[in-house]
Nucleic acid binder design. Sequence first.
DNA 1: AAAGGCATGTAAGGTGTTACATGATTGT
DNA 2: ACAATCATGTAACACCTTACATGCCTTT
Lengths: 197, 197
Amino acid sequence: MNRMKTPRPLTNLELALLGLIQQEPRAGYDLCKIFETTPMGHYSSSPGAIYPALKRLENRELLAGTVERAGSMRPRRVYSLTPSGLEELEAWASQAVTHEDLVWRSEELILRFSFMGQLVDRSIICRFLREVADGIDALLLGLEAHHGTMLDSRLPPGVLPTGRLALELGMESYQGLARWARRALAELADVELDDKG
Amino acid sequence: MNRMKTPRPLTNLELALLGLIQQEPRAGYDLCKIFETTPMGHYSSSPGAIYPALKRLENRELLAGTVERAGSMRPRRVYSLTPSGLEELEAWASQAVTHEDLVWRSEELILRFSFMGQLVDRSIICRFLREVADGIDALLLGLEAHHGTMLDSRLPPGVLPTGRLALELGMESYQGLARWARRALAELADVELDDKG
DNA sequence: AAAGGCATGTAAGGTGTTACATGATTGT
DNA sequence: ACAATCATGTAACACCTTACATGCCTTT
């Protein structure tokens, strides 16, 4: 029987690194630059996090590093995905969207979507978008209940209802995400028509 | 000269705890329940984070704990804000909104707003909302530049533009936040009229 | 008597943050 | 010669996550 310790799940940073390296082989410094200069930088920060993460991924054999400028004191390590690294990424991209993903890991969800185009085919991307949209509809029911209790509760005079307004922002963010998902779904259907035309 | 080590900034969890305890004195267990059962739970997780955070805040003398059921093996510690705790909270709530806050600490920003009603007066709340709305307008200029480059870059045939769509989601989220801020501003102006009426 | 909620905590482990260190290469 | 950029890393520290431990009190 295939019995091995289940490895801890990958962090957002590790997933971002795998996705970027799948686009093309890259060195640590290249990745630092991407995080510094693009909105992808939302998922990282600094060499102090990136280099250790690359080493972890190499230890897990999801990445393989080949050394350029060998013999020099400052070699440049260029990483590529290993077959099992690609497998891991594709499995990640193909997962179903859970309630927990939407509530606790929405950033990972967006990261996942942004790499899906390179990793999986249209049917899986569309399923992802439908699951996001439908999952949010379910979430909103719970939030509306809380919103109702906040509308009922009376505040001391002079205290402005910022707590309620903050909750409304949360609800609107979810609604915006659902609208985006449905619009993206429609756009991807158009792309399909373009391909045929 | 008043020379003391600048203390590290408070974490989101610590700020949430201070804000909740300012509403009324609470024990660790009460706080756990709030995080488990309300959307405030977004900011925490588990006793394993909450109890150490309470202890840290007590060491800093931002909280003071009084022991109920003393002598028992399982005492109940009820925490209240100290004067300097209240000072710290109010200073936090009164800060100007920076570019960095919007890009890197948007969750803290929402937390801040949700407690502002209890902590500061209308003028500061309205300034906060204006700074959020205007700050986002500036941010969006940079994101639109990136969006332009993504529209120009050609993808390999068959690869769907999920990266671009993800960026569009990010931009729409910011736009939604700005719209919310302006709407909240209008609503708070109405409350002012109600008070006078 | 057992189960479940009240109530507080500790321990191990891993990750991110910040700051620092090092040296090579390229441009002026 | 000097500065900036390329390029990789380490060390200290603090925090969160998960899992576990403990014992009281109330209900069934």
